[in-house]
Simulated scan of single mutants.
Amino acid sequence: MLDADFFRRWLLAAAASVDREAARLTELDSAIGDADHGANLQRGFTAVVAALEAEPPQTPGAVLVLAGRQLISKVGGASGPLYGTLLRRTGKALGDAAEVSDEQLCEALAAGVAAVAELGKAVPGDKTMIDALTPAVEALPDGYAAAREAAEKGALDTVPLQARKGRASYLGERSIGHQDPGATSSALLVAALAEVAGG
């Protein structure tokens, strides 16, 4: 069973990963976006870590809802609301339970990803974070390592796509040949989950 501490460790691992990869995320974003994705996420996850340390929530759902709120309030551009929605909706789906099962996390994450897709009006193939999150959620019943591999492959598979959503879509065919920064950071989030789960 997964408790609040597991979810705190997941978000701390995600924050550390964003810190390490911020320059690469911004470099990817400079090709097809505003060149601020890494810096924005870094600021958001720094705020998440501070909030979790200031008053650690006692349930898995509360950990994710708090983190989602921080990302919505601290991260500029589209990624704040999208990441915030992912974590908040996942947290709300987990409810008030002190511990949740792997299966419950699978279902809750699927609800979170569905909420992101609805908010961004995106489907797989649009060259967005959905291209990493959807295969990750579909693979999660097979284990955390499978989810990580699916997310990383999904991010890589955005390279040949033409962006149909977000800032990158303004570039039309010029967006082809670049890896989507949102899918890349989403894969980092899934990899952090796999790392904490030992998968």
Results as ranks from 00 to 15, higher is better:
residue 44 G to F: 04
residue 44 G to E: 05
residue 44 G to C: 09
residue 44 G to Q: 04
residue 45 F to M: 14
residue 45 F to H: 14
residue 45 F to V: 05
residue 45 F to R: 14
residue 45 F to C: 11
residue 46 T to K: 15
residue 46 T to A: 15
residue 46 T to M: 07
residue 46 T to V: 09
residue 47 A to R: 02
residue 48 V to W: 01
residue 48 V to C: 11
residue 48 V to R: 08
residue 48 V to L: 08
residue 49 V to I: 03
residue 49 V to W: 04
residue 49 V to Q: 11
residue 49 V to G: 08
residue 49 V to Y: 05
residue 50 A to I: 03
residue 50 A to Q: 12
residue 50 A to K: 10
residue 51 A to D: 12
residue 51 A to Y: 04
residue 52 L to M: 11
residue 52 L to N: 11
residue 52 L to F: 10
residue 53 E to T: 14
residue 53 E to I: 03
residue 54 A to E: 15
residue 54 A to D: 15
residue 54 A to Y: 04
residue 54 A to Q: 13
residue 54 A to T: 12
residue 54 A to G: 10
residue 55 E to S: 14
residue 55 E to M: 01
residue 55 E to F: 00
residue 55 E to K: 09
residue 55 E to V: 00
residue 55 E to I: 00
residue 56 P to M: 05
residue 56 P to W: 04
residue 56 P to K: 09
residue 57 P to E: 03
residue 57 P to H: 02
residue 57 P to I: 01
residue 57 P to L: 01
residue 57 P to Y: 00
residue 58 Q to F: 01
residue 58 Q to E: 15
residue 58 Q to T: 13
residue 58 Q to R: 15
residue 58 Q to L: 09
residue 59 T to D: 06
residue 59 T to G: 06
residue 59 T to S: 13
residue 59 T to R: 02
residue 60 P to D: 01
residue 60 P to V: 01
residue 60 P to L: 00
residue 61 G to K: 05
residue 61 G to Q: 05
residue 61 G to W: 02
residue 61 G to L: 04
residue 61 G to D: 08
residue 61 G to R: 03
residue 61 G to N: 08
residue 62 A to R: 06
residue 62 A to P: 08
residue 63 V to D: 03
residue 63 V to M: 02
residue 63 V to W: 00
residue 63 V to Q: 03
residue 63 V to S: 08
residue 64 L to E: 01
residue 64 L to T: 01
residue 64 L to A: 07
residue 64 L to N: 02
residue 65 V to L: 07
residue 65 V to T: 14
residue 65 V to R: 14
residue 65 V to N: 11
residue 65 V to H: 09
residue 65 V to Y: 07
residue 65 V to G: 11
residue 65 V to M: 12
residue 66 L to R: 11
residue 66 L to T: 13
residue 66 L to W: 00
residue 66 L to H: 02
residue 67 A to V: 03
residue 68 G to M: 02
residue 69 R to F: 05
residue 69 R to V: 03
residue 69 R to Y: 02
residue 69 R to H: 10
residue 70 Q to R: 13
residue 70 Q to G: 03
residue 70 Q to E: 15
residue 70 Q to D: 06
residue 71 L to D: 07
residue 71 L to V: 09
residue 71 L to W: 01
residue 71 L to G: 10
residue 71 L to A: 12
residue 72 I to E: 13
residue 72 I to M: 15
residue 72 I to D: 10
residue 73 S to D: 14
residue 73 S to N: 11
residue 73 S to H: 05
residue 73 S to R: 02
residue 73 S to E: 13
residue 74 K to F: 10
residue 74 K to Y: 08
residue 74 K to V: 12
residue 75 V to S: 08
residue 75 V to Y: 04
residue 76 G to I: 07
residue 76 G to T: 10
residue 76 G to H: 10
residue 76 G to F: 07
residue 76 G to W: 07
residue 77 G to N: 13
residue 77 G to F: 10
residue 77 G to S: 12
residue 78 A to N: 12
residue 78 A to P: 06
residue 78 A to F: 09
residue 78 A to G: 13
residue 78 A to Q: 09
residue 79 S to M: 13
residue 79 S to N: 11
residue 79 S to K: 08
residue 79 S to Y: 06
residue 79 S to V: 07
